[in-house]
Amino acid sequence: MKIMNKRTGLIALFVLAILFPLIFQNDYYTHMLTLSFIWAIAVYGINLLAGYTGYLSLAHAGFFAIGAYSLGLLTVKAEMNFWPALVLACLITSVVGLLIGVIALRTKEHFFAIYTLCVGYIIYLVIDKWDGLTGGVRGLIGINAPSNIGPITFETAESQYYLVLTFLVVVIFVIYRIVHSLTGRTFLAIRNSEELAQTIGISTMKNKLTAFVLSTFFAGLAGALYASFVRFIGPDIGSTAIMFDLLMYLLVGGIGTLSGPLVGTLMLVILSQNLQFLQEYRMLIFGPILTLIIIFYPRGISGSFFDWKRKRRNQTGNVLKPIKVEEG
C-alpha cells in the first residue's frame, strides 16, 4: 500500500509536469520552468558529490560554463549539429572534470572547498580573458536551438520544455539508480567516514573520482542545455554568484536527498521570479535563510519532511535514537 501511494504520487507529479504547458498556455511560465529544470540538473550533479559523498565542490559553476561554452563553440564556430555537439560538450566537461578531480580529490575538507573555489575562479577568468576563443565579456551569441529529430522540432517553448523535462527525468532516474546501487552506498560510506571506508577495503580515491566525474558530467549537461535554450552565454555563468545560487537551491531543497534539488530549485526560482523587485537585493533574504537552514534544518525541506514523517510513523515505538535512514 505504502509503495503504491508513493508511486501514484510520483506518477501524478509527472502527469502534472507533462500537462503543465497545455493547461497554462503561458510562454513565460513555461520558460521559467524549463530554466529551473536545467538548473535542477546541475544541482543534482552537485548533490551527488556534496550530498552523497561529502565533498563540497565550489567549481561546479565553472563546469556548467565549460559545458555551455563547449556546446556554444561547437555549434556556432565549428557549425556542428546540436546532438553530437551535446554529447561532445558533456564528454569535454567530464574529461576536464577527470583531470581536475584527480588532483583536487587528493585534498580534503576545507582544502578541497578552497581548491575548487580557486579552480572555479580560474575557469571563469580564462573564459573572461580568452577573447579569441570565447568572445570574452561580449559572450557568445546566436547559438541554435536543438536541431530536429526526424519530424520533431524544438523551435517552440513547449517543445523545449518537453526536451528538458525528458532530460531531467532521465537524470533523476540515473541518480536514483546510482544512489541505490553499491556505488551509491560506497559514496555514503565515504561521506560518513573516509577512514572507515578505507579500512574496510573501499578504494576511496576511485569512488570519489567516480562521484566527481559524474557530477561534472551533469553540470556540463545542464550547461549545454542552458546554452541551447537561452541562446546567449557570457562569462558570468561561470561566476561564483551562480555557484552560490546552485548551492542555495541544494541546501534549501535538502542536501543528500533525492527530491531536494528539484524542490529547492523550483521553489527558489519561482520565489525569486515573484520577488523581481528585489532582484539585486534578494540575497538580503536568501543569505540569512541559507545560514538558518544549515543551523536548524541541515537536511533542507525534503530531508526535514521525511524525517518528520518517519518520526510520526515511529511514534508508537521507542525512538530514542532514530537510525539514520537515507530517504527522500
Binding site: 561529502g54 548551492l247 534578494r282 538580503l284 536568501f286 543569505g287 541559507l290 545560514t291 543551523i295 541541515p298
Partner: peptide, 26 residues
C-alpha cells in the same frame, strides 16, 4: 555549528557573505 559536520560551517559562512554583500549594495 560547533558540533556540526565541517560542511555546515562553510555553507553558513557563504550565507553570511551573500547577506553582507547584498546589504552593502542595499
Amino acid at each position: 555549528l560547533r558540533e556540526a559536520p565541517p560542511l555546515h560551517d562553510k555553507i553558513a559562512a557563504i550565507g553570511i557573505l551573500l547577506f553582507l554583500e547584498a546589504f552593502a549594495q542595499f
